[in-house]
């Protein structure tokens, strides 16, 4: 493997992530943690929606499943390292089940089905007091302690989140560039053709949901120890829409889209806060403008600018050799 500009950028990016919280106040570090966590959730939805083309408006409900599982188990004295995988397995199974409607309905209808599912999870979290603590939620979850280092300080928790994020991103990278990733894209672009080439589109659709949901669950399992307080409202439909916004704003189907989108959706409102009452209006306007002028998201804007600057006057490939055959 050659060391290229891409590798260099990756290293610089990682370096920035390592030094970013140094010397910052607790609130900034908290925002950075929050960004990493939502990036994980958005990465999962990006697999389901961006790569495999299956709309889901239920990502927050998987964060709920991950968060509540982790909360209940860690409050019962289990270590996070044991509680988290149990949450992920649960998300995988439930995500698989949520994939079944996608075998029958598409587009808007699928959006409604997943929306209904998110509402269902919200209601269960709110009404089943004995398990979830109802509207009061769960609080006081311990932060994971790894013997030599504890993640009790905000900075340590940030590095813990960063490590989980990097592992999750590396695994996602492995998935999207494997034959599975190619098959997911084939499913998105032309499911009937994909099926005729031997791709089991049913199994693939279910897996797209299941894997995407696992990433939602992982994000949730980090929310629990970060905030140390969860309640049903943290996982309502509006949060699924927010994660969808991250994926779409960043660039659906691009590997770095979700990270970029999560940064914009989480940080932009903070940056715009000085405009006081107007910030939501400004924010919404910016999103609309982006979507109108660049439906492929910010990554799309980036590659457009790059093409302009570098002005690669490449010939269209099919013109290189005349048009003989």
């Amino acid at each position: 493997m050659r060391f290229s500009l891409k590798h260099l950028l990756l290293l610089v990016g990682l370096g920035v992530l390592v030094v970013a919280p140094l010397g910052q106040g607790n609130y900034i570090v908290y925002m950075l943690c929050s960004w990493l966590i939502f990036s994980i959730a958005a990465m999962g939805l990006n697999l389901t929606l961006g790569y495999a083309g299956q709309i889901s408006l239920a990502q927050a409900s998987f964060m709920a499943i991950g968060a509540y599982t982790t909360a209940l188990l860690t409050l019962a004295g289990w270590h996070w390292v044991v509680a988290m995988p149990i949450g992920l397995v649960l998300c995988f199974v439930v995500g698989l089940a949520l994939g079944f409607p996608a075998l029958r309905v598409r587009g808007h209808f699928l959006a409604f089905v997943t929306l209904a599912f998110n509402t269902l999870v919200f209601l269960v979290a709110r009404n089943e007091d004995w398990l979830t603590g109802g509207t009061y939620g769960k609080f006081g979850m311990p932060r994971p302690d790894f013997g030599i280092v504890s993640t009790d300080s905000q900075l340590n928790f940030y590095y813990f989140t960063l490590i989980v994020f990097v592992i999750a991103a590396a695994l996602m990278w492995g998935i999207v560039r494997s034959p599975w990733g190619r098959a997911f894209r084939a499913l998105r672009e032309n499911p009937i053709r994909a099926e005729s080439l031997g791709i089991d589109t049913r199994r693939l659709t279910l897996l797209a949901f299941a894997i995407g949901s696992v990433y939602g669950g992982l994000a949730g399992s980090l929310v629990s120890p970060l905030v140390q307080f969860i309640e049903p409202g943290s996982f309502a439909v509006i949060h699924s829409l927010r994660i969808l916004l991250m994926v779409v704003v960043g660039g659906a189907g691009f590997f770095y889209g979700p990270m970029l989108g999560a940064a914009v959706v989480i940080l932009l409102p903070e940056v715009l806060r000085f405009t006081e009452g107007y910030y939501l209006i400004l924010y919404a306007t910016l999103v609309i403008v982006l979507m109108v002028f660049c439906p492929s998201g910010l990554i799309g804007v980036g590659s457009r600018i790059r093409d302009k600057l570098w002005s690669r006057t490449r010939d269209r490939g099919d013109l290189k050799q005349g048009a003989q055959l």
Partner: peptide, 10 residues
Amino acid sequence: FQQLSVFPEM
């Protein structure tokens, strides 16, 4: 297929 069936974005 009768209709063109490639994966256009690949």
